[in-house]
Each structure stands twice: as structure tokens, then as C-alpha cells.
Simulated assay, not measured.
Amino acid sequence: MTEALTDTTGTRVAVGVELADPVSAYTITVDDGPVVGRAEFVDNPKAEGERIIFHTEVDQDFAGRGLAKILLEEALADSIRRGLTIVPVCPLFARHLTRRGDEFVAAGGMFRSPTRADLSAVTVAVRHRP
């Protein structure tokens, strides 16, 4: 999904996407190693073209290297490329879009505030994950 990304230490990282039913994720690896971070999402079952991002986590051994920020930026860039509306349930994404939502929209992005129905969709998806 990405080319030539590096973390704050200068180490090469890669962001990919794992599509699954019901919960998918943007993933990040460091130096061709295993996945060390995830931004989990559900594609809204009631509204085509909406991606509910609900949880972002980076392995503690890799904390402080900017990996969550890279995941966030790549996920938002991917949503622009795909014409998806982001629904930020994850506090990291919600905070970013509260602060920089105008920039995201100016770059071609779309987002909206989550509703109870979105939270319910996440709850159902998480309960039904294998």
C-alpha cells in the first residue's frame, strides 16, 4: 500500500491492509518484520462507502516511534483514494479530525461524527469476529 516510509528512528516501515469479515485493519510492520500495529475498522454495513475506524494500537516495544501517526495518515490517505467517508470512533482519529478535519476535507477527504448506530455496528462486528 505504501512506499518508502520511515519511523522517527529512520527505520523503514510498511503499511498494509488486512481485509476480513467482520473486522479489517490497516497494519504496520517495521523492517519487514511482523505486524506491530493495527488500526481496526468496520465497513459500515448500513451505509456503503463509510469506514468506521474504532481502535488503533501499537506494540509497546515500538512506542514513541510515530507508528500510530503513520497508520493514521496512511488510513486517511487511503480513504481519499477510495472515496470513503471516515467515521472516527477511535480517539486518535477523532482527535486528529477535530483538529485537522478542514485540511483533510481540503485534500479530498470526507468524515462525519459517529452515531449510536455506528457504535452498535462496531459492537456487533467485534462480537462476531472469529
Rank of each mutant, 00 (worst) to 15 (best):
G37L: 09
P114N: 12
A14V: 12
H128F: 04
F104D: 12
R100L: 06
K46Q: 13
A77E: 12
M1I: 04
D43Y: 00
F104C: 10
F41H: 10
H96F: 07
T29G: 05
A39F: 10
V124Q: 13
C90Q: 13
V35Y: 05
R51F: 02
H55N: 13
G109N: 02
V23H: 06
A75S: 15
V89K: 05
D118L: 13
V105S: 04
S24W: 08
E57Q: 15
A25T: 01
V13G: 06
V36W: 02
R129G: 03
A47L: 04
D21Y: 01
R81S: 12
V122M: 11
S120G: 12
L119V: 09
T11R: 13
E73V: 08
D32W: 01
V122W: 06
P34Q: 11
V36N: 02
V13S: 02
A68L: 05
A75R: 07
R116Y: 12
A106D: 13
M110I: 03
P22K: 08
E57P: 00
E18T: 14
V17W: 04
V105N: 02
E103P: 00
G16K: 01
I53L: 14
G109V: 00
T98F: 07
E73M: 14
S120V: 15
R127H: 12
I70R: 08
A106M: 02
R51P: 03
M1N: 03
F62A: 07
V58Y: 11
P130C: 03
R95H: 15
D78R: 07
A77S: 11
G108S: 02
A121R: 06
V126C: 03
T2K: 10
R65Q: 14
F104Q: 06
I28K: 03
P88I: 06
T29I: 10
S79I: 01
P130R: 12
T6R: 14
D78E: 13
T123R: 15
A14P: 00
F54W: 02
K69F: 04
G16Q: 03
E50W: 08
S24R: 08
A63H: 15
